[in-house]
Amino acid sequence: MLDPKKLLDDLLGSKVPGTESTVHEKTDQAVQLAKDNPLAAGALVAVLLGTGAGRKLTGSAVKLGGLAAVAGLAYKAYQSYQNGGKPTPADVREPELLPAPEDTSFHPSQAPQGESEFALALVRAMIAAAKADGHVDDEERRKIAEKIAGSHIGPDAESFLLGELARPLDIEALVTAAHTDAQKIALYTAARLTIEPDTRAERGFLDMLAGRLKLPDALVDHIEATVSAAKVPGGVEQRAASA
Rank of each mutant, 00 (worst) to 15 (best):
V70F: 02
I223Y: 00
A125V: 02
D28W: 11
E146F: 07
A166H: 12
K26E: 15
D137S: 00
G66T: 08
A186R: 01
G163F: 03
P112D: 03
L209M: 14
G163R: 06
D138T: 12
G84I: 10
T27Y: 08
A61K: 06
L7C: 11
A111H: 07
E115C: 04
L49P: 02
T88H: 09
T88S: 15
I171T: 14
S228D: 11
S105C: 00
L44Q: 12
D3L: 11
R203F: 06
A100M: 06
A178Q: 01
Q113L: 05
H222K: 08
S105R: 03
A241T: 11
A173C: 06
E94W: 01
Q110K: 14
D3Q: 14
A218V: 10
S80M: 12
V70Y: 02
A243W: 00
K76E: 12
S228A: 12
A225P: 06
G66E: 07
T104G: 04
I185K: 03
L161S: 07
D103P: 01
L49I: 11
Q29E: 14
T88R: 15
E172N: 13
G65N: 09
Y78A: 13
P87K: 08
G235R: 07
E140G: 03
L215N: 00
L64R: 09
T104H: 02
V227R: 01
T58E: 10
Y81F: 15
S14H: 04
P95C: 05
L49M: 09
A243C: 03
L193F: 03
A77G: 04
L165R: 11
M208L: 13
K35P: 00
D156V: 09
L165P: 05
E164C: 10
L120R: 11
P17G: 05
L187D: 00
E139S: 13
E139A: 14
A46Y: 05
E139L: 14
R142M: 15
F205H: 07
D36T: 09
L174A: 08
K26A: 14
E202V: 02
E140S: 10
I153D: 05
P197R: 02
F106V: 00
P197W: 03
I195F: 01
E224A: 13
G52T: 11
S109V: 11
S116G: 12
A61E: 05
L174Y: 02
A178H: 01
T88V: 14
E202L: 01
A240I: 11
V31Q: 15
A241K: 15
V62W: 05
G59Y: 12
A229K: 03
L165N: 10
A119N: 11
R124E: 12
A241I: 06
K26G: 14
L215A: 00
V23G: 08
L213E: 01
P17M: 07
V92G: 05
F205N: 03
L7S: 09
K147D: 08
V220K: 06
V70T: 10
Y188S: 04
S80R: 15
